[in-house]
Amino acid sequence: MGLGQWIGLVVFVVCLYISWQIRQVLLLIFTAVVLAIALNRLVRLFQRFRIGRSIAIFLSVGLLLLLLAGFFIVVIPPFLEQLQELVKLTPEGLERLRSWTSWLQNLIPEQVVQDLRNLSGLTQQLQSLLSSLFGNFLTLFSNSIGIILNCVVVLVLTIMLLANPAPYRRSFILLFPSSYRHRVEEILQQCEVGLGGWVTGILFNMAIIAVLNGTALLILQVPLALANGVLSGISTFVPNVGPFLSTIPAVLLALLDSPGKAVAVLVAYIIIQQVESNVLTPLIMKRQVSLLPAVTLASQLIFASFFGFLGLFLALPLLVITQVWIKELLVKDVLNKR
């Protein structure tokens, strides 16, 4: 290797190290890019009605903020109220659990009973854990200021990218050799199409899941059916993990009425999730963007281990971008090149 190649290698390694150190910032920038691509479709829709781009951007961002405000107004306050009620009723629920355990001891063989004798201590630990968790709720809210600031930064970056995306795109392309810049432009176009298709598919999925789960909860007469339906729809943004987490509050609220209702809610959520995973998602995503289920789950584990919760949240758009670059750059331009 010549001196220039060694210098290039050192610069590349240094850039990788710096990128790793500022990975959270880069993820926030990537979030703004994904949001800008999603809103840009809405902006173009407004422009079809002969609305200027500036006004279209204002309307798109305003609609996004309106939806976020509606979510916090519809979902958060009722959940906090029901959460307080749930905390008050937790000792009663645990006492019922102990009585069910005593009843089951008369039906289960003695060897199995010996394995369940620690359940009483487990419920006591669970009660103390819940008390500690909800007792530190104010601390959790005080630490959320950083999340709010990050959201503001992402929103500002999104508006900047929407207002004039061309200079940022040209600056990124200039990082590549002149002979390859046209090819990079094509790959970026493929990335935009892939992300746009994914956004369309995931928004449709979220709407369908919200309606189905909300309807099921209304039929079962579970409190906060609308709020839980909206929450389950939003949680679909994070496949596998999100739907599981959205099941917990609905089951807990149903448990306040009766164990049978809680089981019914759990069964309904599982059935709807299976329909979404095995029927709805393949049909929609196959037309929008091709993502294999096993690769999707593996990408969530990988990005979550490297980047934390934000990596888990952005696992699918990151996978879409990675898939496009591997297919176009590595497979077509390197491996298949003769």
Rank of each mutant, 00 (worst) to 15 (best):
L67I: 10
V43Q: 08
L42D: 11
F30T: 08
G70W: 03
L64I: 01
L45S: 15
I55C: 14
L64W: 04
L67A: 12
T31Q: 05
Q47G: 11
F30C: 13
V75N: 05
S60E: 03
F71S: 02
S60F: 09
V61S: 09
N40M: 07
I55V: 10
R44C: 09
L39D: 07
L45G: 15
L59E: 13
A38D: 05
A38Q: 09
L68C: 06
I51W: 08
V74I: 12
F30M: 03
G70M: 00
A56C: 08
S54R: 15
A69K: 03
L63W: 01
L39S: 10
V75P: 06
V61C: 04
R41A: 09
A56M: 13
L59N: 13
V61D: 00
I73P: 00
I37T: 03
R44Y: 02
R41G: 10
G52I: 08
L35H: 04
L45M: 15
I51V: 03
F49C: 11
L42K: 15
T31D: 06
V75K: 10
L45Q: 12
F71W: 00
R50W: 13
R41D: 09
V33Q: 01
F72T: 14
R53F: 10
V75S: 14
G62C: 08
F30D: 04
S60D: 10
L39A: 11
F71G: 04
I29Y: 09
N40D: 15
I55F: 08
L45K: 15
V43K: 00
G52Y: 00
V33T: 11
R53C: 06
L68A: 08
L63A: 14
V34Y: 06
L66D: 03
A38M: 13
S60W: 06
F46S: 15
I51P: 07
L59G: 15
L39F: 07
A32T: 05
V43D: 13
V33I: 14
L63K: 01
G52E: 14
A32H: 12
L35W: 03
I29E: 01
F71M: 01
L65S: 03
V34N: 00
I29D: 00
I57P: 02
T31V: 07
S54L: 10
L59C: 06
V34A: 06
S60Y: 07
V74A: 05
V75L: 08
V75C: 14
I37L: 14
V75T: 07
I57A: 07
I57N: 13
G52D: 13
S54G: 14
L65K: 04
G62Q: 01
L64A: 10
G52K: 10
S54C: 11
F58I: 10
I73Q: 11
I51D: 12
L66H: 05
R48W: 07
F71H: 01
L39G: 08
R48E: 15
L63M: 09
N40E: 13
F71E: 00
I37D: 06
R44A: 13
R53V: 03
L64V: 09
L35Q: 07
R53T: 03
R50L: 02
A56Q: 12
G62D: 05
G62W: 05
L39Q: 11
T31Y: 03
